[in-house]
Lab assay of single mutants.
Amino acid sequence: MQRVNMIMAESPGLITICLLGYLLSAECTVFLDHENANKILNRPKRYNSGKLEEFVQGNLERECMEEKCSFEEAREVFENTERTTEFWKQYVDGDQCESNPCLNGGSCKDDINSYECWCPFGFEGKNCELDVTCNIKNGRCEQFCKNSADNKVVCSCTEGYRLAENQKSCEPAVPFPCGRVSVSQTSKLTRAETVFPDVDYVNSTEAETILDNITQSTQSFNDFTRVVGGEDAKPGQFPWQVVLNGKVDAFCGGSIVNEKWIVTAAHCVETGVKITVVAGEHNIEETEHTEQKRNVIRIIPHHNYNAAINKYNHDIALLELDEPLVLNSYVTPICIADKEYTNIFLKFGSGYVSGWGRVFHKGRSALVLQYLRVPLVDRATCLRSTKFTIYNNMFCAGFHEGGRDSCQGDSGGPHVTEVEGTSFLTGIISWGEECAMKGKYGIYTKVSRYVNWIKEKTKLT
């Protein structure tokens, strides 16, 4: 034993070699072989497995989906700052455009905790909710729209109204504003409101030439003092309507412009014939205590009207009353817009006519005020429907199939267009061939041609 100890002390290297040989010859039971080890760690190889990531292109799944990435790591994937920024906006807080917040056709661009709407022409605001041009839906104005110097929408209202708090709607500024039905039992019968379409306001006024200088022999019209197929109006439903009495009662109609003036057809009036105007009328054979009678003290036909040349060209006249009318729910003026808007309103496509005229061709006159909704007829169809001249200051309205029309005794009465609950004068009943005849239409004086003249002559002093 002493000898062994001496050998170990003198030859430590020998001992180490012996131990190493023993270990190498022993069977290893701690580690699995290569094949079995792979069965336990069965993990798919990654895209760049075996390579240094710093030297390969980034992978979106590896960089940002398996674990949260930084902007720089995302930049490695896209290799483009702009594309990385677009991805980053949604990656950080989701897609803010998912709810489609942009209105009126706006395009949404996502941002971090926010979004941006790219608005089409005519709109602005956070969600493109603000109209900035009158060309689109009248700028959301209830009545009139004008573009300011910086191309912003400025709404306005006709006389007797003021802008509401929203700067879009119009509200009454006087007790009985024009064009409004205020009798409670008839307010439910107000005709369907007309909503502004998209309009090209630059070209809204037709490029028409008034044929002022045409000389033409007097034409022989049949029954051209021209509501057939209409309905009984309720008291106060058309408070701007008046009836004219002269040699015979209810020979023509008219509309209240203001307390002192009536507008009617020029062919209705004769110099030297006494005319009485009755406002607030409903049943011409009954006294309903809503009527107001006034005498006409002055007749002003349009300066281009000449019955000797043509009885229905420039067929418009103004009547001055001896005493002002007292405005109330049964006696209310009709609204008159400017030339541009009167023309736009007419193009809405349908209007209402009213009167006490004959209820059928050569038949009896109506006792109760009649009204009828009539569609506008395109000019080409209008011209083809008659052998008589249709001037540019006239328009056609009615039904091709016949059966409904204005008729004798309705002449001078109103053709009105309702705009968001307020009625505007767009025409004056003038003439036609018979009444409600198939293929024939009622012919009306186009008020847009005469609004400046009306307003100039009827100013209240």
Score class of each variant (00 low, 15 high):
residue 345 F to D: 01
residue 380 A to R: 07
residue 198 D to W: 12
residue 204 S to W: 10
residue 433 E to G: 11
residue 428 I to T: 02
residue 212 D to V: 10
residue 158 T to M: 10
residue 275 I to F: 10
residue 377 V to E: 02
residue 231 E to G: 11
residue 157 C to E: 01
residue 370 Q to A: 04
residue 225 T to E: 10
residue 327 L to T: 06
residue 183 V to N: 11
residue 133 T to A: 07
residue 340 E to Q: 14
residue 163 L to Y: 01
residue 302 H to D: 02
residue 12 P to L: 15
residue 315 D to F: 01
residue 334 I to N: 00
residue 239 P to K: 00
residue 438 K to G: 14
residue 29 T to Y: 12
residue 295 N to P: 03
residue 195 V to W: 11
residue 363 G to C: 04
residue 406 S to A: 06
residue 428 I to N: 01
residue 211 L to I: 13
residue 303 H to M: 08
residue 80 N to W: 03
residue 338 D to K: 05
residue 16 T to K: 08
residue 48 N to H: 12
residue 345 F to P: 01
residue 371 Y to T: 15
residue 422 T to G: 01
residue 309 I to R: 09
residue 420 E to I: 07
residue 106 G to Q: 01
residue 104 N to W: 01
residue 290 T to F: 07
residue 419 V to E: 02
residue 157 C to V: 01
residue 123 F to R: 04
residue 11 S to C: 12
residue 211 L to T: 11
residue 20 L to E: 03
residue 375 P to C: 04
residue 143 Q to N: 01
residue 105 G to W: 02
residue 270 E to W: 07
residue 338 D to Q: 05
residue 438 K to Q: 15
residue 390 I to S: 11
residue 85 T to D: 10
residue 47 Y to I: 12
residue 432 G to C: 10
residue 456 E to N: 13
residue 200 D to N: 09
residue 405 D to H: 14
residue 162 R to E: 09
residue 322 D to N: 09
residue 88 W to R: 15
residue 380 A to D: 11
residue 175 P to C: 03
residue 82 E to W: 04
residue 215 T to E: 06
residue 80 N to M: 05
residue 416 V to A: 10
residue 217 S to H: 08
residue 368 V to L: 10
residue 67 E to M: 04
residue 325 L to S: 01
residue 181 V to D: 05
residue 258 N to G: 03
residue 274 K to L: 06
residue 419 V to S: 05
residue 262 I to H: 01
residue 351 G to W: 01
residue 447 V to K: 00
residue 444 Y to C: 03
residue 90 Q to W: 06
residue 171 E to R: 07
residue 331 V to N: 02
residue 122 G to W: 03
residue 13 G to F: 13
residue 192 A to S: 11
residue 426 T to W: 01
residue 79 E to P: 15
residue 8 M to F: 11
residue 53 E to K: 10
residue 58 G to K: 14
residue 144 F to I: 03
residue 283 N to D: 11
residue 112 I to F: 11
residue 129 E to N: 04
residue 148 S to L: 08
residue 92 V to I: 11
residue 14 L to T: 04
residue 337 A to D: 00
residue 131 D to P: 15
residue 197 P to L: 09
residue 256 I to W: 02
residue 249 D to I: 05
residue 369 L to N: 10
residue 223 D to Q: 10
residue 265 A to N: 03
residue 116 E to W: 06
residue 414 P to E: 03
residue 196 F to K: 13
residue 295 N to A: 10
residue 449 R to A: 15
residue 288 E to V: 06
residue 19 L to F: 12
residue 442 G to H: 15
residue 384 R to P: 07
residue 243 V to D: 01
residue 355 G to S: 07
residue 189 L to M: 07
residue 413 G to Y: 15
residue 330 Y to H: 10
residue 316 I to T: 01
residue 308 A to W: 05
residue 342 T to H: 03
residue 96 Q to S: 10
residue 179 G to Q: 01
residue 352 Y to T: 07
residue 330 Y to R: 12
residue 102 C to G: 01
residue 165 E to L: 11
residue 230 G to Y: 11
residue 284 I to C: 04
residue 125 G to Y: 00
residue 55 F to Q: 15
residue 391 Y to T: 13
residue 204 S to V: 13
residue 238 F to I: 06
residue 290 T to V: 06
residue 186 T to L: 06
residue 41 L to R: 14
residue 91 Y to T: 04
residue 42 N to A: 12
residue 461 T to Q: 13
residue 329 S to I: 04
residue 65 M to A: 12
residue 262 I to Q: 01
residue 418 E to G: 05
residue 90 Q to S: 14
residue 41 L to W: 13
residue 424 F to M: 01
residue 172 P to M: 06
residue 420 E to V: 11
residue 286 E to N: 10
residue 443 I to W: 13
residue 76 E to C: 04
residue 278 V to M: 07
residue 384 R to C: 03
residue 444 Y to S: 00
residue 382 C to V: 02
residue 218 T to F: 10
residue 191 R to N: 12
residue 33 D to N: 07
residue 433 E to D: 14
residue 81 T to G: 14
residue 83 R to D: 15
residue 283 N to V: 09
residue 98 E to F: 08
residue 258 N to Q: 02
residue 435 C to H: 04
residue 5 N to D: 07
residue 118 W to D: 15
residue 179 G to E: 01
residue 75 R to I: 15
residue 39 K to G: 13
residue 456 E to D: 12
residue 220 S to C: 05
residue 310 N to C: 05
residue 458 T to W: 01
residue 242 V to T: 03
residue 378 D to H: 10
residue 364 R to F: 07
residue 129 E to T: 02
residue 2 Q to N: 11
residue 393 N to A: 05
residue 441 Y to G: 02
residue 278 V to P: 00
residue 179 G to L: 01
residue 108 C to P: 02
residue 335 C to H: 01
residue 375 P to G: 14
residue 326 V to S: 11
residue 144 F to A: 00
residue 456 E to R: 12
residue 241 Q to K: 05
residue 407 C to T: 04
residue 336 I to D: 01
residue 130 L to P: 03
residue 25 S to M: 14
residue 124 E to Y: 07
residue 402 G to E: 15
residue 200 D to V: 11
residue 149 A to Q: 11
residue 145 C to T: 02
residue 48 N to E: 15
residue 114 S to T: 09
residue 199 V to R: 13
residue 98 E to W: 08
residue 134 C to N: 02
residue 305 Y to A: 02
residue 147 N to L: 13
residue 410 D to I: 15
residue 10 E to G: 14
residue 334 I to W: 01
residue 300 I to V: 12
residue 325 L to V: 03
residue 77 V to I: 07
residue 383 L to K: 12
residue 239 P to R: 00
residue 103 L to D: 06
residue 53 E to R: 15
residue 75 R to F: 07
residue 175 P to T: 08
residue 457 K to M: 14
residue 448 S to F: 02
residue 17 I to F: 09
residue 287 T to I: 13
residue 287 T to G: 10
residue 418 E to Y: 13
residue 449 R to M: 14
residue 305 Y to S: 02
residue 406 S to Y: 14
residue 313 N to H: 13
residue 108 C to M: 00
residue 129 E to M: 02
residue 418 E to A: 13
residue 277 V to C: 03
residue 113 N to C: 03
residue 421 G to E: 06
residue 174 V to E: 09
